[in-house]
């Protein structure tokens, strides 16, 4: 890895318009920055690489903010540290982003219930009429088994069996509908 004097010479040549020197400066600096950010952001190598790039852009676009009378590494790490602090602040801000005052809309319970009702009614159409009638009377219209039996002229146990079989079939139909 290049030392202070070499890096400084590369940057100064780059400032004077030497493209190859500037490329070498950025490459060497990139490696130093990678080590710096990886050390400080353990477990977040993608963030570290993002910061390497951000810092390289900052160093490049503000490269004349380097004062040649002072150590280059002091300048370089002052900017790297600044980018790191900025990154941590932004991350904190993101983590605490509040939804207060943000209108995300309300879930409509009536809509959801009517949706579910429509689904059940659709599936109910697929059952044999005996089961369908029993379920509609007892489960949807909330009549007693006895009332359902008198209304349909069937026995109470017949109604119960129909409900039991019908519900089983409904569950099967629903899981098929969910899978498709």
């Amino acid at each position: 890895m290049a030392d202070e004097a070499q890096l400084r010479a590369l940057l100064l040549k780059g400032l004077a318009g030497d493209e190859a020197a500037h490329r070498a400066f950025l490459t060497e600096t990139g490696a130093m920055l990678r080590a710096y950010f990886r050390n400080r952001l353990r477990g977040a190598p993608e963030d570290a690489e993002d910061l390497v790039q951000e810092t390289l852009v900052a160093l490049h676009s503000r490269r004349d903010s380097y004062d040649p009378n002072y150590p280059l590494t002091a300048w370089l790490y002052a900017i790297a540290r600044y980018r790191l602090i900025d990154h941590v602040r932004r991350a904190k801000h993101r983590a605490h982003a509040s939804l207060d005052g943000v209108d995300v809309g309300e879930t409509d319970p009536q809509f959801e219930a009517s949706d579910a009702r429509r689904d059940v009614l659709t599936l109910l159409e697929k059952l044999p009429s005996k089961q369908r009638t029993a379920i509609r009377l007892v489960k949807l219209e909330e009549k007693s088994v006895r009332e359902a039996a008198t209304q349909t002229g069937r026995s109470e146990s017949d109604i119960k069996v129909s409900i039991h079989r019908g519900l089983k079939a409904l569950v099967r139909l629903m899981s098929e509908a969910g899978a498709s």
Binding site: G17, E19, R23, L26, G30, V52, L56, D64, S65
Partner: peptide
């Protein structure tokens, strides 16, 4: 963007002398 590509792109911008007169 890969860091190497970024460096190449930045280096291409440095073809002329760059010094702002801060004073």
């Amino acid at each position: 963007m890969k860091t190497d590509d970024l460096i190449a792109a930045l280096a291409r911008e440095s073809g002329s002398e760059y010094r702002r007169n801060w004073a």
